[in-house]
């Protein structure tokens, strides 16, 4: 649920209030950049897509009717910007593992946390291998912490579809994780 100030900021920005627009940027640019960074897999593309997103936000301000929250509206714009960019550049290949490994290793990594970090990296990598629709839904709902309704608004789909996709994604992740765990064991046994 969006807080009332965001709505008021949008309303002020619609009437040409630049300070309100700057405040909107401060409220959302980090989340939007993180969302696009996870999808685009590199900082330069994510920054470019973030700029495109906010440019489209300013263009779309007059048409914002307030039916959804400001957060889901901006995420929806970012999502469509990303989809357009991916289609234009035909970027359909999954991202490399290094970025997630680097992200997982950013925090403190004591020895006891090492296996947990490895597991998280495996999960994130598996998410990147999901089908595009499922992956984007997981990103919006889990990574961006949008509610089901906001995720549905951002993607322009029904809430029930969001639930279905998340259920499918979790099942796929279960399968992939089990497969990942079994494969090293078999290799180890085979090596022995």
């Amino acid at each position: 649920m969006e807080s009332p100030p965001a709505n008021e900021l949008v309303e002020a920005a619609r009437h040409g209030d630049t300070a309100a627009a700057v405040r909107l940027i401060e409220l959302f640019y980090e989340r939007i950049f993180a969302f696009l960074r996870r999808l685009a897999a590199n900082d330069a593309d994510a920054a470019d897509l973030t700029q495109r997103t906010f440019c489209r936000v300013w263009e779309s301000l007059p048409t914002f009717a307030g039916r959804s929250s400001v957060g889901s509206w901006i995420h929806g714009i970012a999502y469509h910007v990303y989809v357009d960019w991916r289609r234009a550049d035909r970027r359909t290949e999954p991202r490399s593992d290094e970025w997630w490994a680097a992200c997982a290793g950013d925090g403190p990594s004591p020895d006891e946390e090492l296996s947990r970090a490895d597991l998280a990296a495996t999960v994130f990598r598996s998410v990147d291998q999901l089908e595009a629709q499922l992956r984007e839904t997981v990103h919006l709902h889990y990574y961006q912490e949008l509610t089901l309704q906001e995720t549905a608004d951002a993607q322009g789909i029904a809430t029930s579809t969001v639930k279905y996709r998340l259920r499918q994604a979790l099942d796929e992740l279960q399968k992939k994780l089990n497969h990942e765990r079994m494969t090293p064991v078999a290799t180890t046994q085979g090596a022995k």
Binding site: Y29, E30, F33, A34, R37, R38, D43, A46, A47, T50, Q51, C103, A104, D106, G107, L119, A120, V123, F124, V127, V138, Y142, Y143, E145, L170, L173, Q174, L177
Partner: peptide
């Protein structure tokens, strides 16, 4: 799995952005 996903790292935005 959901807990792991929710605790996903948040990429830091570039300072110049």
């Amino acid at each position: 799995i959901e807990n792991v996903l929710r605790s996903a790292p948040k990429p830091k935005a570039l300072t110049a952005l």
